[in-house]
Structures are given as C-alpha cells and as structure tokens.
C-alpha cells in the first residue's frame, strides 16, 4: 500500500466521515444472560470465583462483550455505516483485523435471566498508522450494554484493520507446481504464436515491418507506423534497461510471492516489454538499471523471459532473496 501521500489524505478524509455514525443499532443479545455460558466462560478462563455460581450467581463482569457477540450467524443489528467502513478498508487492502484495546465499565452486575440489548457508535477512525503487523487504521467503537433496558455497562473497543506486513508463509502442504498454484498460462493466438515459439527456443523475437522497417512489441497484426501487414522478426540482443517499474505487494495471487518487482524494460533495440526484474531485491530496482534477458522456467510447461540485473563490474552473483 505504498502510494502518494495525497491519496492517503483523501482516503483518510473519507474514513473520517464515518465518525459519529452508528456501528450497531438496537442490537439484541442472542441469549439472555445464562448459567451455561457463564460456566463455559469460567471453565475456559480457569476462573473458580464462587460469585459466578450458585443461586445468587452473577456473570463475570468481563463477559460484557460476550453477551453482544453474534457467533456464527449474521449481525442484523450492524448498521450500514459500519459495514461500509469495514468494506472500504477491506477493499483498500486492509483485510486483516486485530483487536487492540478494550475498555469496559460495569455499572451493575448481570445475572442469569437478564435480557441484553445494545447500541454502538463509531467513535473514531485514526489516520494511517504503521505497526509491526502492517499498515492500517484504528477504528474505535463505543457500545452501551443494557439489561432489561437499564444501562449495565459500557464497552469501548478498538480494532486495527491492516494490510499484513509479512509475507504469508506457505503452509507445509503447499508445493510449487501444485494445481491452482501455477502461474497463469499465456494466451497464445495466431497474432502472437511466433513470439511464444521463439520463447521455447530461448529467443525474444521482436516484430519488424518489412515495408518501413519499424520494430514493434508486443506483437500486433499490422504496423502502427505505415499500416503494413507484412513483417518478419529480429531476435533481441537481450540488453536493456529499466524504463519504469512497480513493486507488487498486494494482493498475493497464487504462485506469486510478493513483494516483487515488475519492470518496464527498454530493450537495446528500442522497444519495451513488461516482465519481472530478478537478481536484485525488489526494493533495489531503479530506473536506468542495466538488465539482461534470461529465460526462466516456472514449471514443466512454462518458460518466461525475465530480466536480470546486469553489472559488468559485478563478479559474484547477486543475492536473490527467497528461493523459489
């Protein structure tokens, strides 16, 4: 999510408009306060406080939020504004969530039989923050929890919606070359079949108009300069420079291992091609960097032209980071 500061400001301003809007309206606890849920809670926490058992039992006060949880079902009480806010964050890449703060005040004890209702408001949305987990936004809500209509407690809750900073580690079962984890196949048709045939011979073929001799890439049926449909090919020398590049962080498509650099490479012949830049850490790719063509095999049927950083003074191979 590295972008221009003004883009973040505009996005933040949009997020700010959700402050003060409802997060949940007239929520109803799925179950009234009850002994079984209290007992399950105490078992999990290892809490043997006698105040939570017997005829005069109260619920552990720290269960306050548990009575408002939707469980595996939907959240009919959740207000449109809150859903919208979370969706905005999801769609902008901040799909992971972690709770960071919980502040509860207990005004009266909850007892078995108490019917729970609650309302919640979006108190604040932070500016963009970078944490160890990743970069994202803190969203704070405040909930009033009522028992039999009477205010029993308040609950302020803060979550971080973030784009994970660390690359997801592949699970042990995942192996390269497994179905569904392979790179997308190239779309080969009559207009570009010659190019892919060249790739199988480890040649990067550039089209050349036989009428005006203009080189073109990617492959097209006709010449953009003179309109001629007559052409032949020349094999690229393999020398080039990085004309421009982007670093792909998100989303992590299957078979791709972000972050990685995608370069627009200007070949020595003058045409440009989009491909991966390898042999250099993704954050060290620079415009003007000399690169040299190589052909890399990705699986038993896919070979692609990629560009490796090339430096004549470099004697040792450049450390390439994570092995594939």
């Amino acid at each position: 999510m590295s972008g221009e500061p003004e883009v973040h400001e505009e996005f933040e301003a949009r997020l700010k408009t959700y402050e003060g809007r409802p997060a949940a309206e007239t929520g109803v606890g799925r179950d009234p306060v009850n002994e079984p849920m209290i007992r399950h809670w105490c078992e999990a926490m290892g809490d043997t406080n006698p105040a939570y058992t017997g005829p005069d039992a109260i619920a552990p006060p720290t269960m306050l939020q548990a009575w408002t949880m939707a469980g595996l079902t939907g959240r009919p009480e959740r207000a449109a504004a809150y859903d919208e806010l979370l969706r905005l964050l999801d769609e902008s890449g901040h799909h992971a969530v972690v709770a960071t703060d919980c502040e509860q005040e207990y005004l009266r004890p909850l007892r078995p039989g108490d019917a729970i209702t609650f309302d919640s408001v979006i108190e604040s949305v932070s500016e963009r923050k970078t944490t160890k987990l990743g970069t994202g936004y803190f969203v704070t809500t405040r909930t009033d929890v009522r028992a039999g209509g009477e205010l029993a407690g308040t609950h302020r809750f803060r979550i971080l919606k973030y784009a994970p900073a660390r690359r997801p580690r592949p699970a042990p079962a995942r192996r390269p070359g497994q179905p569904g984890e392979r790179r997308p196949r190239p779309v080969v048709n009559r207009d570009n079949a010659g190019f892919w045939e060249g790739v199988t011979r480890h040649e990067l073929l550039i089209q050349r108009c036989t009428d005006c001799h203009t080189l073109r890439f990617p492959w097209l049926p006709g010449c953009n300069s003179c309109g001629s449909a007559q052409w032949d090919t020349v094999a690229a020398s393999g020398e080039g420079t990085v004309c421009s590049y982007v670093v792909m962080h998100y989303p992590p498509f299957p078979a791709f291992d972000p972050p990685y650099a995608v370069g627009l490479i200007e070949l020595a012949e003058g045409v440009r091609i989009v491909s991966n830049v390898v042999g250099v850490p993704y954050d060290k790719v620079r415009i003007g960097m000399p690169v040299r063509l190589e052909f890399r095999r990705y699986d038993e049927e896919l070979v692609l032209p990629v560009f490796r950083r090339y430096d004549e003074e470099l004697v040792l191979p450049v450390f390439e980071g994570v092995p594939e």
């Binding site: 105040a51 720290t62 960071t100 919980c102 509860q104 207990y106």
Partner: peptide, 27 residues
Amino acid sequence: ILTTNGLVGRYITDHFGPRAVLRRVAI
C-alpha cells in the same frame, strides 16, 4: 482480546476474593 480481558478480571478477583467487585477493566 475477550479471553485476555477475562484472564485479567480473574487475576484481580483471585487476589481480592469473591466479594471484590470489578468496576472497570481497560486493557
């Protein structure tokens, strides 16, 4: 976070006894 909250509450009431009344927990 709810479990952490519950454990913090337990820690306090374990120490101060069953008559202790939790008023506020902020973590």
